[in-house]
Design a protein around this nucleic acid. Structure first.
Lengths: 219, 219
DNA sequence: GAACAATGGATAGTGTCACTCTCCATTAAT
DNA sequence: ATTAATGGAGAGTGACACTATCCATTGTTC
């Protein structure tokens, strides 16, 4: 197919497709003449992946570039970790100002403690590790009255562990079709994030509405 | 205190503070002369809230404006729902193109079914409802091979319900100090979101690494 | 009370981001 | 042969979140 059809089938304007090619997110079509190129199903798939990461997950073009790079280069199938390398690129690197080192150290040890307690087989390079540290620092900073030590973090760990168990079923076979498994990991991580946050808000509403009326009456 | 001290104590540049005042996020100081104004602890608190919503939660200035407006105007204490009205402003309104109506209807009924099954006391105006619908549509669109009907959504509902129970303890008393409770609700919702997503990624890593090696060997 | 710094308010400018538009020399389609 | 479409390059756009500059006052210090 050519540009116009790729655009029509994907719903992405040609100008935007050209932009993605320039940015290295999408490989150029096979050039058949100085001003002609052919695109195929792979381009369509890639475009769909880009749009999902962009629109549904809200990742920046630069971040998507890193995720796709990792997906392209990390020899799928060699080791289960290939599934996590691309996901790790979804995060911004952690930068710590000199005067904040202590806060981050404390948060880091909190995370470590939670992981130990739950007996998780993860390390400091695992995706999410630095994000967790960053979040905890922010929580301490902006909600200083809230006690948010390892004991308070554990329920979060248990809840997401339960989630992970239901998301990744026992018969999930990453070795069967490594490319599909990788795509599934990246998209599953990204697309379900807003759903989880949305449902959590709903659960909060239910929880608050379930508070005994007496609590409200004494106002 | 005056501008310079407000800036020093909050760590926010004066130019930015002035910008927040212009945008209506921060009330102007009490003017004592044509070019003099006094700020107090409330300004400092508000500024901290704005920075938390901006930096840690990633909300836009416009969204923060709506959240703060709701916090200011929704007569705290009158009813438990006051805690949710400001949170609802954290979401973008749902806009549905004509050719997508069916997809959204289907997703909406999925959400309804999950809520019924879990017996949640929420309605379509509750914060998160539209977000959940939007997410499910995106999941269907970008992961069409994945079965994501009510049955598959239930584990998410159960996990966040468990979370909500641990987050909002039985002795949480929204009527005691309504303003503090409101601030706690908004910040708690926003600040813990990235933490949950980070821990979920870690749980995924653990889950994948726990996959029996045999699955990998047959590659 | 004179010199100098700081203030609040208004306005304009900056850098980033994700596109989007305009050209143009070809090439395809009719 | 005419008309439309193509790919590639570069410039332009609009939103966003600040940031910088002015300036007529006011505070502060000597």
């Amino acid at each position: 197919m050519r540009m116009a059809e790729l655009s029509r089938l994907s719903g992405v304007p040609t100008a935007t497709i050209k932009y993605y090619v320039r940015e290295g997110l999408l490989p150029a079509g096979e050039t058949t003449a100085p001003n002609q190129a052919r695109y195929d199903q792979q381009h369509l798939d890639r475009l769909s992946l880009i749009r999902a990461l962009r629109e549904a997950a809200g990742l920046s073009i630069a971040t998507i570039g890193r995720v796709l790079d990792a997906m392209d280069h990390d020899r799928p199938g060699a080791h289960p970790d290939y599934l996590t390398i691309a996901v790790a690129e979804m995060s911004e690197p952690l930068v710590v100002r000199d005067d904040e080192v202590d806060d981050y150290e404390r948060a880091r040890s909190d995370v470590r403690e939670v992981i130990d307690e739950l007996d998780w087989n993860v390390d400091q390079n695992s995706p999410g590790y630095d994000d967790a540290v960053r979040s905890i620092v922010a929580i301490h900073r902006y909600l200083p009255d809230l006690v948010a030590g390892p004991d308070e973090l554990l329920p979060y760990g248990r809840a997401v562990r339960q989630l992970a168990d239901s998301e990744i079923s026992d018969d999930f076979d990453p070795a069967g079709d490594p490319v599909a498994a990788l795509r599934f990991s990246v998209l599953g991580t990204a697309l379900f994030e807003p759903l989880i946050l949305a449902l959590r808000k709903l659960a909060h509403v239910d929880r608050i509405r379930s508070t005994p009326a007496a609590t409200w009456a004494k106002r």
